[in-house]
Design a protein around this nucleic acid. Structure first.
Length: 594
RNA sequence: GGGGGUGUAGCUCAGUUGGUUAGAGCGAUCGCCUGUCACGCGAUAGGUCGAGGGUUCGAGUCCCUUCACUCCCGCCA
């Protein structure tokens, strides 16, 4: 028999009454009646109420034992009377009559309570993460994460994918995020980089003939954090398949995500078959490439309206003449909303740095008219054209923004969220997945005005790419796709370019000559020259999937030992200073010394 | 790098128009209490009001600087 326990703290039931048992766990809570003491003993599995009275020689010692002390209790399972049964816990029909107890791990005064639903400042939670992780909600989140990962691994293996590990110390790549660098002792002055993703390795696995690969892969990017973006490191379900087209990847991932989300959440799926939205369409209709499709509001472009002579809103007309566009959001049946609703949104827009959101409401009091600050600038005929273009009706309101395309996309996208929130249009009990497809291969760098890869340089361009098409690189689309759920980007993937000749052409557009490509991507480009299969894949973000399933808004709530926003681990004190000796071995010296 | 929010007891927070000795709940310590499950009751200890400077007869409160945490923008192929 194990000397610490015969049962865990969620095991004992009525059928165990009169058994002599041993339990070990943490003191979750004490209720001290002076001559009678209740102790809630907690472990990973649950809580069991234990009881001791003053006749027991251990009474006063246990009475003075701190919460969160780890103790071992020997005693007898006894029945609870009907009026003292606790239906909140699974062991609530019984309790343990304590005969003796022993302290296994003592506990100092707590810097933060464990048994409480209160929220605490993050720095304390992170410094004492081992205490924080004892708390119910986050403890359950981490267990959920484990179960989700097991399930996904299981599904992938069932689908005949092979799991492989890829190097953590690899080479720095010029494209994309900042790398974490690791100095090499054996090669002084040279650096490894931690992988931003196993991108090149998974393609090499395909070239090596393994056909279907996956990995729950750690990824490292030295970029600033957000609520849904851990600093430093995160995990992806990295997968890659040979001899596939885009649709084959979609089928695998769609099935996996539907299975995962139906298994681990009770929320409804808005679509079993994920809708596909082109990049151009999503940027117009939603102003972003990660649209929240639970939100029914749609953005429409009505720039042309301002060419009409019977539209006299001169501010917009003038801006349109100089190249600006006008886009609007229609809200259904909002004619009775108070003035404060409309002004609130206009004020909010100004706070976001926009010049505000103009608005009017369509009304028909005899004649069709627009009520609101800018209503008077539109003729009846112009209003009819607007109604056709925006699919709006009498009683609806329209919010207008005018500006350069990228500014407009940003503000209308934010306004879509804001208005939907104010009108309570988003059903929080739903997951709305979609594919964003047909990303452009290239984009223009705003600062340098140079052409650069808009996503992954290894993606396969669409079409045959005649010399003529290559002259207009901004028109080239890629077999590049994202999965979005509830406005969160879950994953990004592509059919890869497995043809070296084409690769050189595309890189030359982005300003890399053959020699540079050979140097920077030697492993890849070399491998593609020795019989590479057509292949493609994707990499859903594990942390974000768990975040959605756990209904959390912050990724740290589903990460066991996260760093703070400044990429510091407050518990382990990382990053830290290192010895001069270590630096010397690596051939490094520091420019900045404290 | 930029913008917003927050910072008062170990924890969560209140603190009015600038005005006497800065409060509450939880936790800690001590005492009372034999059926609680957020047990109850009483007492005690516990404060660099994030830090520094300024205005003022007087600053937790107003101003400036700065630090920490957090959210957002940039960034994240």
């Amino acid at each position: 028999m194990n000397k610490y326990r015969t049962h865990n703290c969620n095991q004992l039931r009525k059928k165990d009454i009169d058994k002599k048992i041993i339990l070990s766990g943490w003191i979750n809570k004490k209720r001290d009646h002076g001559n009678l003491l209740f102790v809630d003993l907690r472990d990973n599995y649950g809580i069991t109420q234990c009881i001791i009275d003053k006749d027991n020689e251990n009474f006063s010692k246990l009475e003075k034992t701190q919460l969160e002390t780890v103790i071992k209790i020997e005693g007898k399972v006894v029945s609870r009377s009907d009026d003292t049964v606790n239906k909140e816990i699974e062991t609530g029909e019984i309790e343990i009559s304590i005969e003796s107890f022993e302290v296994l791990g003592s506990c100092n005064e707590l810097p933060m309570p464990v048994f409480s639903d209160q929220e605490y400042a993050e720095d304390i939670r992170l410094k004492y993460r081992f205490l924080d992780l004892r708390r119910k909600k986050i403890h359950e989140n981490i267990i959920l994460r484990s179960k989700v990962i097991s399930f996904i691994r299981d599904e992938m293996i069932k689908a005949e994918f092979l799991e492989f590990q890829t190097p953590i110390l690899t080479s720095s790549s010029p494209e994309g995020a900042r790398d974490f660098l690791v100095p090499s002792r054996l090669n002084p002055g040279k650096f490894y980089a931690l992988p931003q993703a196993p991108q090149q390795f998974k393609q090499l696995i395909m070239v090596s003939g393994f056909d279907k690969y996956f990995q729950i892969a750690p990824c490292f990017r030295d970029e600033d954090a957000r609520a849904d973006r851990s600093p430093g490191e995160f995990y992806q379900l990295d997968l890659e398949m040979s001899f596939v087209e885009q649709e084959d990847v979609f089928n695998v991932v769609e099935k996996l995500l539907v299975n995962t989300f139906t298994k681990f959440s009770n929320k409804k799926l808005m679509y079993d078959k994920f809708p596909k939205i082109s990049y151009v369409d999503t940027m117009l209709k939603y102003g972003t490439d990660k649209p929240d499709l639970r939100n029914p509001l749609i953005i429409n472009d009505i720039t042309e309206i301002f060419d009409r002579d019977d539209v006299t809103f001169e501010i917009f007309k003038k801006l349109v003449k100089s190249g600006s566009k006008v886009r609007c959001i229609t809200t259904k049946n909002t004619k009775d909303k108070p003035r404060s609703f409309f002004d609130g949104i206009d004020k909010w827009a100004k706070e976001q740095g926009a010049s505000g959101l103009a608005y009017f409401t369509l009304e028909k009091d005899g004649d069709l008219s627009a009520k609101g600050p800018i209503g008077k600038f539109f003729s009846k005929e112009a209003l009819i054209e607007i109604m056709e273009k925006t699919n709006s009706a009498v009683g609806d309101s329209l919010f207008f923004a005018c500006g350069k395309q990228n500014e407009l996309e940003k503000i209308t996208s934010q306004a879509r969220d804001k208005i939907a929130k104010d009108l309570n249009l988003v059903d929080d009990n739903t997951f709305a997945f979609c594919w964003i497809v047909d990303y452009p291969m290239f984009e223009k760098d705003e600062d340098t005005n140079k052409i650069k890869f808009s996503h992954n340089p290894f993606s396969m361009p669409q079409g045959n790419l005649t010399e003529n098409e290559l002259k207009n690189p901004l028109n080239i689309l890629a077999y590049q796709y994202d999965i979005v759920c509830n406005g969160i980007e879950l994953s990004s993937g592509a059919i890869r370019n497995h043809k070296p000749d084409l690769m050189y052409k595309l890189f030359s557009i982005a300003g890399y000559n053959k020699k540079q490509v050979d140097e920077k991507f030697s492993g890849m480009i070399n491998a593609l020259s020795y019989g590479a299969p057509p292949h493609g894949g994707i990499a859903p973000g594990i942390d974000r999937i768990v975040m959605l399933l756990a209904n959390e808004k912050n990724i740290r709530e589903v990460t066991m030992f996260p760093m703070n926003q400044n990429a510091q681990d407050l518990m382990m004190s990382a990053p830290s200073d290192v010895d001069e000796k270590q630096l010397k071995e690596l051939g490094l010296s520091l420019k900045t010394k404290k």
